[in-house]
Design a protein around this nucleic acid. Structure first.
Lengths: 242, 242
DNA sequence: TTGACTTATATGTCTAGACATATAATCGTA
DNA sequence: TACGATTATATGTCTAGACATATAAGTCAA
């Protein structure tokens, strides 16, 4: 292990230690299961304190590249192909990022007491008030996605008076509701008549479906279903080990 | 900020500090843009050293919950709905995890010099050797997914002699190729005649498509297309802020 | 008002120790 | 041989300092 290699562009020591180890794992020099040097060995090798080495190894462990076991040492983990970061961009941002003109249109909005189906969809028990919204996003005046959303007013009372004819509910929620958790389910369907008409595609054409449930501290906020024409839209998920 | 709350189940101090701050962000008490206390203030509040506070804040920054700016302080970031962790499980693991019987069948295997289409798909320039594989995964003897794969033999020479009639290429690669990076593209199509027959679904039925490109240190390893019946398969991506 | 210079300060990294704790390895006993 | 107790050790957390560095804010001159 060369101590001084590219020290110029790796200013801090712990980052260099981390990069050195990462490189050995990526090239396969240290295969899955391989025990990487003990902290005290790296301390001797780099001539630094244990805290510095520990910081490097802790970050590698957090990134999932290595596994640390007390008394035993640190080991290279097997690659986990199955975990990937999926970027589901805000639709407006996604379209403008492509250099196209974003268009939005509210199709339907209704304030009602939650039906059984609504409660099911939101995963709540009490029959509070909800807002149901259907709207359409377009890029350069071509339909891009149709959105079908339910907002729980007991969690987000302000949504009752928000003007969703001007601003998409997704953007509004992003700006008015604090940090959230979300779960996305992705599937494929074929367009029924109503969907086909709204998206201006053929009946029976494939559609990518994203169902997103959002909540905050165990409180449901919103449930949304997004339908994209399947042949024109793609979701990209990128995985990087470390 | 109560110092002693649930200290019993939060054994270490830095984790408690992290959890305390995370809670305030999640509940909206500290909205996006809010400046969280300076390190020296938290040091005074918790009666610990700065390194302990620093570790808690560094992890929150790494998780994307806060942003740290020199001289200015640390600030709550806006929620980023668009980022989610997608778990694309190894198919065998996915099926056995559901308590169903995994089945595998090699449909086609061919070793050839890369065609123009192959080179395009793998993103390589030179016309080396490749292995093309078509196979089928099933759960309880019902077709689950059809896989169409290309392996670059200049990156993975061993794949030329591997027995893919017994072991799925995905599993084989997982065990024989070191750490990798991958990019997934998800889209929807309708089943053509050949796909419909292989998956035992109707022609025109919706299918979820996952295209995965895998490489290691800028070397392409494999390109694979997985087709799932769209109505029976769902991908779940979960986002958790922090 | 604007631009250049200076200063104060919060974070970034690091040290040389310390004790805690989980557990692999060893030893002793039934 | 099998099992229970002991010990050694690598990691986990923490301290009370230190200097480095980016930059917000203030100062001063053109």
């Amino acid at each position: 292990m060369s101590l001084a290699t590219d020290a110029a562009d790796q200013p801090t020591l712990y980052k260099r230690i981390r990069a050195d180890i990462e490189k050995r794992i990526l090239t396969g020099e240290w295969p899955p299961g391989h025990r990487i040097p003990f902290e005290h060995e790296l301390v001797a090798r780099y001539g630094c304190s244990r805290m510095t080495v520990n910081k490097a190894l802790s970050e590698l462990a957090q990134a999932g590249l290595i596994e640390r076991r007390r008394r035993a040492g640190s080991f290279v983990r097997r690659p986990q192909h199955q975990s990937a970061v999926l970027k589901i961009a805000d639709i407006r941002a996604e379209i403008t990022a492509l250099g196209r003109t974003y268009g939005y249109e509210l199709i339907h909005r209704k304030l009602r007491t939650a039906t059984t189906a609504d409660r099911d969809r939101l995963g709540v028990k009490k029959a509070g008030k909800v807002v149901a919204i259907t709207c359409r996003h377009s890029a350069d005046n071509v339909p891009f996605a149709v959105e079908d959303r339910l907002i729980d007013l007991s969690s987000v009372p302000n949504a009752a008076t928000a003007d969703f004819s001007r601003e998409p509910p997704g953007s509004w929620l992003l700006h008015h509701v604090p940090w959230t958790e979300a779960e996305h389910t992705i599937s494929a369907i074929v367009a029924d008549e109503r969907t086909a008409e709204t998206l201006d595609i053929a009946v029976g054409a494939p559609c990518l479906v994203i169902d997103r449930y959002t909540w905050r501290s165990a409180r449901t906020i919103t449930a949304v279903r997004l339908l994209y024409p399947g042949d024109s839209h793609r979701l990209v998920a990128r995985f990087k080990g470390g």
